[in-house]
Amino acid sequence: MIKRVLALDGVLAICHFRDDGSFVEGYGMMPEDQMAGLAHFAHDYKRIVQGNTDQLSMFTGINGWTPPSGWVVHGQTHVVCSVGNIVCLLDEQASLSEVIQEMHEVSSW
């Protein structure tokens, strides 16, 4: 079902990973090994963001950051974003808001 996100403009690839980091499935214009690498990175990065938001909450006493729903890394021409256990690679034609909204829906299934 995550394939439907691929129909949005600018979405180059989408991958699904398990809580232990293993690759479940991936679709788009990337070789399978690169998709598995993207899923692995997204899993690791998710844990880092969780760790950092935990610390931010701990130091500030404000809880609105935890638990994090996802993260976005914006490069010059590409964006990588993740919600739940799904990660997408986008180019500059994508609407980030639209993609993230769709990822929220898909990740809650």
């Binding site: 690791d44 844990r47 880092i48 760790g51 950092n52 935990d54 610390q55 701990m58």
Partner: peptide, 10 residues
């Protein structure tokens, strides 16, 4: 512990 664990993961 929370801080050290977060840095270790990273």
């Amino acid at each position: 512990s929370i801080m050290c664990r977060a840095t270790t993961m990273s």
